[in-house]
């Protein structure tokens, strides 16, 4: 029996609709579920007071600090390295075997499980270099983890700047560096910023690489050599050790809101940037 194409179409598209609705429903359910369980417990006190009894009661203030400090330091370390490498690869060398190897290496490392970075950071920074479980070990490990992403996204962004813009720069008497600084980088900025924001988001959500390098101290750190706990790690410990599911949900809600804020800020920056250029 041959089914008429119009009937196949109706069947196929109904399947698509059902699967899509199902998919979106699951994903929306996750956000709504966490919010419904967590949002009621979020308050000023929860955000800005210290945890009590291992996190069973009290707030999450130290983990808030950890969540800001670790990704920030990681970005400060990784951005100059990553963007500098991308500029070098795209503008200062010609395509050859070495650049291809670097690119393949960056691609591979971008896909390496974060636990491997955790393993490396734990043995290398924490143990071998005797930095201990500390902010510095954690942020260095995170910097290693996000470096490949920053290199690749910056490279893509720089490559997307039309070649004719560079020609204009050179023809108007700009040196290579002046062309890079005045024309290439400003026009690649939205892409570079997106890569950085993506990396911040990834660092905030990271648990495996952080828990073994920054530790899980709930005290407010005095220096970069003190251990710290991020929100993700805090959430993991609360959830895994069954300390308090109420506080776990609340922490998860704060985490999702932070990611949401980062995405919104990224969109805002991009839109402002595009509007400014074409106004």
């Amino acid at each position: 029996m041959i089914i008429h194409p119009r009937h196949t179409q109706i069947i196929a598209i109904s399947m698509l609709v059902i699967l899509t609705v199902f998919t979106l429903a699951i994903l929306v359910f996750i956000i709504l579920f966490v919010f419904s369980k967590g949002l009621p417990y979020i308050s000023f006190d929860f955000l800005f007071s210290n945890p009590e009894d291992m996190g069973k009661a009290g707030g999450i203030f130290p983990t808030l600090i950890g969540t800001i400090v670790l990704p920030l330091l990681a970005i400060i370390i990784a951005t100059p390295l990553g963007v500098g490498t991308a500029v070098y690869l795209t503008e200062y060398t010609r395509e050859n075997r070495i650049t291809r190897i670097i690119r393949f290496g960056a691609d591979c490392l971008a896909g390496i499980p974060s636990i491997i970075f955790g393993l490396f950071g734990f043995i290398f920074f924490v143990t071998t270099l005797e930095m201990g479980w500390s902010i510095i070990s954690g942020s260095l490990t995170l910097a290693f983890m996000i470096l490949p992403t920053i290199i690749r996204t910056s490279e893509e962004a720089i490559k997307a700047v039309p070649y004719s813009y560079r020609e204009v720069g050179f023809s108007l008497g700009a040196t290579l560096w002046q062309t890079v600084r005045k024309i290439v980088l400003p026009n690649a900025l939205p892409g570079i910023v997106t890569g950085i924001m993506l990396s911040i988001g990834r660092s905030i959500g990271e648990t495996a690489a952080v828990i073994f390098t920054a530790g899980s101290s709930l005290r407010i750190p005095n220096s970069v050599f003190d251990s710290i706990r991020t929100m993700s790690v805090h959430f993991y410990i609360l959830a895994r050790e069954g300390i308090s599911s109420k506080n776990a949900y609340a922490t998860a809600a704060v985490l999702i809101i932070s990611i949401l804020l980062i995405n919104l800020v990224t969109y805002w920056i991009m839109n402002r940037f595009i509007a400014k250029k074409t106004k």
Partner: peptide, 12 residues
């Protein structure tokens, strides 16, 4: 946004 949600939340 969903891609950015920490994996531990999914685990929980």
């Amino acid at each position: 946004l969903l891609a950015g949600i920490p994996s531990v939340v999914y685990g929980f």
